[in-house]
Structure formats: C-alpha cells, structure tokens
Write a protein that binds this DNA or RNA. Sequence first.
DNA 1: ATCCCGGTCT
DNA 2: AGACCGGGAT
Length: 349
Amino acid sequence: MNFADEIVQWYLINKRDLPWRNTTDAYTIWLSEVILQQTRVEQGMPYFYRFLEKYPDVSSFAAAHEDEILKLWQGLGYYSRGRNMLKTARLVQETYSGRFPDSYNELIKLKGIGEYTAAAISSFAANEAKAVVDGNVYRVLARYFGIYEPINSTQGKKTFQKLADDFLNKKMPGLHNQAMMEFGAMLCKPKNPACNVCPVRPGCEAFKTGAVATLPVKLKTVKIRERFFNYFLITDGDTVLMNKRGENDIWANMFDLPMIETGSILPLEELLKQPEVLSVFGKKIDAAEVSPVHKHILTHQRLFVRLIQIHNQPEIKTDKNWVKIDVQNLPGLALPKIIFILLKNIFNL
DNA sequence: ATCCCGGTCT
DNA sequence: AGACCGGGAT
C-alpha cells in the first residue's frame, strides 16, 4: 500500500464523526468549510449548527440581512468571511437559481472561496479530482517526504500543490482529502505528533532523520517595528553628554545621546510634558529642535530620530550610563551611523 | 504577556 | 507582502 492508501485506511478507522461529513450538499459543505477557515473544529461547530438551523439553504441565506449574518458570526473572527458569504449566497441565488455550484471552476470564482475551499467543496460534494492543501496537508507532506521548502513561499506553495495533486486518489478524491486533513489534525499534529502509532512511520523521511519537529519550514514574516527616538544634546563648555547603551537593544554597548523613546512623533511641546522628560530635565527647559526627523532603516526596525538641544539646564538628574565627553574625542567613540550624522552636523566633525 | 496558528483578499 | 481575528500554548 502506498502512503496515501495507508492514510485512508487509518482515516476509516480513526475519523471523528463530524456533521458536515455526512452530506454531499454543496451548500452545507460550503457553510462548514468557510466557518472552518482559520478556525478550530471545536470552535466552529456551534456556529455551523446555528447557521444551518437559521439558513437551511442558500435561498434563506441570500435573503438575510448583513447585520443578522454578522450577529450570528459574532465571536468567530475574520468577519469578512461572513460578509463574503452573503455576497456569494446572493450571487448563487441570482445566477444559479439557488443551486449551489459544486465544480472547482465555478466555485473558485465566488467571493470567499479560494483554492483550498474550492477543492474541498468540489471533491466532497461531487468527487471532483482536486487535491486540498491546507495547513494539515502541508505538514503531512513536508514531513513524510522531507521537504524543506517553505510552505508560505510562492515556489513552496506550487511544490506542495503539485505533490498533493500527484498523490491524490483519483478514484475517491473526497475520501482522500478528508483523510489527509484528519490525519494531519489528529495524528501528525504540529506539536507532539503521535509517531509511535503512525501507520506510515517506516516511510516517513522526517522521522528517519529526526526532523519531525523542524518540518514544515515556514518563512517567518519579519515585522518591522517603528520607534521614535528623541535625543537630547546637552553641552557644557567643550563637552557633550553621551550615553553608553546597554546589552539588550540595538547598538549594544555603543554610545548615543541621552534619549526618550516615545510611541509616536510628538510635537516638541508635547514631548517636554512627558513624565519621563519631566523627571529627568524638570519643567523649565529651554529646548529647541536642532535637526529634522531623520528616518533610519534597520533590518527589523524603522527609526525616527531627532535631536533636541537643551540650552540652560543647571540641574539634570543624570543617569549612571551618562558620561561627559570632550567634543574632540567624539570621533574616537563607537557611534551608530545616525548618531554620528547628528553630531557631525552640529560639531562639524 | 507574548507567540503561534491558519485561508482569502487586496 | 500585509491585513484580517480569536483561541490555545508557552
């Protein structure tokens, strides 16, 4: 028996009895599939029952008000799913006279139905030979075949779709698709997969190489953080107050200037009222901006940096990391690029 | 408290 | 590539 047949055998014995599996009605399957997008079975189940009871067919769904749909959808998240369902129900009512389509090529045109859902509905309702590739299928294929291509890259998606298509049981695509997903959800789980009872363990590349916990590979999207650095230029004769940075943030152990970080760009007036500023510099600061806001790009951060000169400051509550440095010694310090630029403009370094 | 997970649309 | 959401794990 090949890999896919083994999984179908496993499925026939171990499957959960879920309500949407006992029908070939495209409308009912559509309802369940959209509810289950990005949603766990346990969470989606009560919503499925409520929707099916209130809207037993596409005509009743199409006749609903958007407010009713959203109310019934409340708590499920990704509310555009509900709004798209209403658009689709109305379109189906109009153009298909209420007969929900069950072919991949018709389904894929509908709002809220992408590749996965079109393959799911067409294979479950009409046994069309389209392989589903959802998060479960990615995981099962990546592990069994030992594929390190990222599942969320453009090329990776193609690779996995092709692999899924190649292994699809063309005689019973619906059963095959259900089996692949159930196997991923119940046995080949993201965490703590049940390899000890896995029927395809002997052929599993990830198991052989100890890569089960590593696969599938997923590109993590590096979110770029925006930060706002307000630097203060505090001079005394030929010296300037510098700050030795700590270990944990960017520019570890390098020198910058005394600084207050804020959550956004504040007008100078506002900035000087911030508690952190008041506690360090007091109320009567004679301060002026001496640089525009510089945008400084790092790999994971976008910095908005400006320099504010403080003219008359007799008593500053100084920090233990602050040190007076002779201006002529500034070029000898390890300075981040943007700090060097700010100081260069002031002191003609 | 923060991270991770997941289909579709734009 | 990023936005959309809530739940479960850490």
